[in-house]
Write a protein that binds this DNA or RNA. Structure first.
Lengths: 190, 190
DNA sequence: AATTTAACATACGGAGCCGTATTGTATTGC
DNA sequence: GCAATACAATACGGCTCCGTATGTTAAATT
């Protein structure tokens, strides 16, 4: 029927994430991304109804690929809770997935959430899922419910801090500080 | 000579911070701020050379008012180190200064830093100053140099996490979690 | 009261970006 | 080979925003 597509939706979405991490949501312009892909708007409006549709699909993509699969991976890995926790710490600060800077993207997404309630709702839901998951791991390790939840929250705030600061200060000490904190909690129960 | 000014530079700067916290840097448009102040661009370009000049003055203002005076306040308060630490925790998460949402502004500034090296440099410098200050307090409380620095870093990442998450999730539990962590460290040395 | 000037208003040109409409081209089934 | 289809390029109108240029007004000065 038609020819082989030079670009499919995912190409556009990944490119969009690239500039999202780089310039923020407001920097995600269709003409810019087109140029980045070596094509033009004409192609974009074939694949997407409008700019808004792209943004929606980006959120969708992130929701699927980002959070869920990581948690599922860990669950299916069949390793003890403390190891899962350690692993999680590393995965979360790992810089590249799908060829783009995960930390920059996570940071930019949260900045975006500050301007858009739909995004805010999605991210908030995700945060809760993640925090509860971490709290569960801590309980499995041996912490009490209360303390586990509090610690999970602390861990998570710290991770968000890493997301934030890493966007403008590349010093790896930030990630390290976070990972050390997590490892410490995984190591010994008080 | 002329008539009394309806608005001075500081009015513009504060209004700009307002929409910075709300919409991010890219939302800081001179016409929008003019409308917000009930005036027009004509006034703006009387007080500022261009949009860039406003942004520079905003950073200047924040650098002066935000960081330095807080540290100086604490130093001059003449209270013991552990009390200073507790105080700092509260001041940092206090929502309003100059009538605007400090957390939103802090968050937006860091998002901005991700897009602009000049801002990144300024913020990075500030972060270091703050972390060192906190580390100093911890040393005074009785922690060893090494541990104090590590803990200060943890505290600070958590604070950045609060800045980040508070922009899209108003739940006060986030600030509380942070404050509890700080208080805990202020309470007892291990 | 007339004049000057600080402070603001208005009008304009130009750039960037969105979305649509139209036209172009390569690939596949026939 | 030809037509249908899938994808891409180009051209355009409209909007928003920046910055400039030029009016307009009200307070201070004389």
């Amino acid at each position: 029927m038609g020819r082989k597509a030079k670009h499919d939706k995912q190409d556009w979405i990944l490119a969009a994430f690239q500039t999202l991490g780089d310039k923020g949501v407001d920097g995600v312009k269709v003409e810019r991304i087109a140029k980045q892909l070596g094509t033009t708007k004409g192609s974009f409006y074939w694949h997407f109804a409008d700019r808004g549709a792209l943004l929606v699909e980006m959120l969708d993509f992130w929701d699927q690929q980002g959070t869920r699969t990581i948690i599922e991976q860990l669950r299916e890995a069949g390793i003890p809770a403390d190891e899962q926790l350690r692993q999680l710490g590393r995965i979360a600060t790992e810089t590249r997935t799908h060829g783009l800077d995960a930390i920059a993207v996570e940071g930019a997404l949260r900045a975006w959430a500050g301007q858009d309630e739909k995004v805010a709702a999605l991210i908030s839901k995700t945060e809760n899922t993640r925090i509860k998951f971490v709290a569960g791991l801590l309980v499995d390790i041996g912490y009490g419910e209360q303390e586990a939840h509090s610690l999970a929250h602390q861990i998570y705030l710290m991770l968000l801090g890493v997301y934030s600061i890493s966007r403008y200060d590349a010093n790896p000490i930030h990630s390290q500080t976070y990972i050390e904190f997590v490892d410490q909690l995984a190591d010994l129960k008080r």
